[in-house]
């Protein structure tokens, strides 16, 4: 099984680098996961990660792009609830990348 080191502790991840156990996530783990993806976390990233983790707590699934945009718009306002804004923070596939850094499972049916 693949593992990554967080604070010198081995933590199991799946072949795509998603944490296997939700309980292994900590803010330090997020920093580590982000660095591996070439993302330096800022305040702007953290508020998205918070929205994402709240979404998961409520609905018990990671959102695809459209519901993520909707949730961000509802929590942080329409200026941030745009795919272009999320793309600038989490390049490529924001829903997938942000879920990974937030320690959540990969969104189902994420294109």
């Amino acid at each position: 099984m693949t593992e990554i080191l967080i604070n010198d502790q081995p933590v199991p991840v799946d072949p795509e680098g998603f944490l296997r156990n939700l309980g292994d996530w900590t803010p330090e783990a997020a920093e580590q996961l982000a660095l591996q993806e070439g993302v330096q976390l800022t305040e702007a990233h953290w508020e998205i990660l918070t929205v994402l983790r709240q979404f998961y707590q409520t609905f018990e699934m990671s959102p695809a792009m459209r519901p993520l945009v909707k949730a961000v718009a509802a929590e942080l306002g329409p200026d941030k609830g745009k795919s272009i804004y999320l793309m600038s923070l989490f390049p490529g596939s924001p829903a997938k990348l942000a879920s990974k850094i937030a320690g959540l499972p990969k969104p189902t049916n994420c294109l």
Partner: peptide, 15 residues
């Protein structure tokens, strides 16, 4: 198992 009622409440977010 995963909570289906939580997941169904999410459908609205997918329009």
């Amino acid at each position: 198992q995963k909570n289906l009622s939580a997941n169904l409440a999410m459908l609205e977010m997918y329009d």
